Simulated assay, not measured.
Amino acid sequence: MDVADLSPAQARERFRAGERVPTAGWCSGWTQANLIAVPKELGYELLLFAHRNAQACPVLDVGEPGAWSTALFPGDLRTDLPGYRLYREGKAVADLDDVVAEWRDDLVAFLIGCSFTFEQALLRAGVPIRHLDMGTNVPMYRTSVACQPSGTLSGPLVVSMRPVPAALVDVAIEVTRRYPQVHGAPVHVGDPAAIGIADLGRPDFGDPVEVRPGEVPLFWACGVTPQAVIMASGVDFAIGHLPGHMAILDARDDDYRVP
């Protein structure tokens, strides 16, 4: 079966069984989300941080302390994603297939909106998506744009990039602005140096893609931002998804579309 035709439950089952792959293009029509799980004592600061930086960190769901499922993710957050990243003292210390052994009773899981959610809408509007054509992960970059801090949490905005033909830039902006809970319209169009990105060929997360003549790089706020903030803030312990390897929710992309 084509991965685009899988249900969220079928995808989660495959990840639980050990499939490890970026999820762009999986489960067409179903919403994907970023995972960040932090100790309960940090939960309020992270929730406030997300509120203050809502375009980068749109919260779709939050779990109870210690819980490994939520209303929108009825699977197991410890096993049903295709990759995890473990943080200790602000450093990424391991990429893991599952986090059963690392999950703690005090962890609060946040599910943050993902720009993969609006990619089918872009395709329907005729906007090509290079990383889907290449079968790779989307490129993601730390920027020089500082997020608004909350308590002990501060750090840079992370963006994802998609090259768009110049004639379709306005179309891409109009399509994605209708999805404000999954990052909405681009935060920057054009020159990457203006937001502190020195080399599009060297993303901080994900894979590089070609920007061809006549194309303009468009940058969307990215739900990997909380992981960059975890590192910048030296947080003692956190669990995130491996960037681009998302949680697939029991929610529809159209649930997050506004007129």
Rank of each mutant, 00 (worst) to 15 (best):
M246Y: 07
A232T: 02
P186R: 07
F205G: 10
V211F: 01
A194N: 08
P213M: 04
A167P: 02
A238K: 07
D204V: 04
E215H: 13
G234L: 03
R162G: 03
P139G: 12
L200P: 12
M161V: 06
E210R: 15
E174A: 14
G196N: 11
M246D: 09
M134A: 14
G214V: 01
I230T: 13
G196K: 04
P180K: 03
D204M: 08
H188Y: 05
A146M: 14
M140F: 07
H245M: 13
I230K: 13
V182Q: 07
Q148F: 04
T152L: 08
V224F: 06
V169D: 03
R130W: 01
A185T: 14
L157Y: 07
P192W: 02
L242S: 15
M134C: 07
A232W: 06
Y141M: 04
H245D: 09
T225A: 03
D204R: 13
V138L: 11
P165T: 10
H183R: 03
M246N: 10
V235M: 05
I197G: 04
V138G: 09
I173C: 13
I239R: 12
W220C: 03
V127H: 04
A198P: 05
V127Q: 01
V164P: 04
T225P: 02
T225R: 07
F237A: 02
R130Q: 06
L132P: 05
G214C: 00
S154T: 03
V175P: 06
M231Q: 11
L242T: 15
P165G: 11
V229E: 00
T143N: 08
F219Y: 09
S160E: 08
S144A: 09
H183E: 00
Q227V: 04
H183N: 08
G151A: 06
F205W: 15
G126R: 05
G244Q: 10
V209I: 15
A172I: 03
D199F: 13
D207E: 11
L218F: 02
V138R: 09
E174V: 00
D170T: 06
A198Y: 07
I197E: 04
P163G: 03
V158T: 07
H245P: 13
G240Q: 01
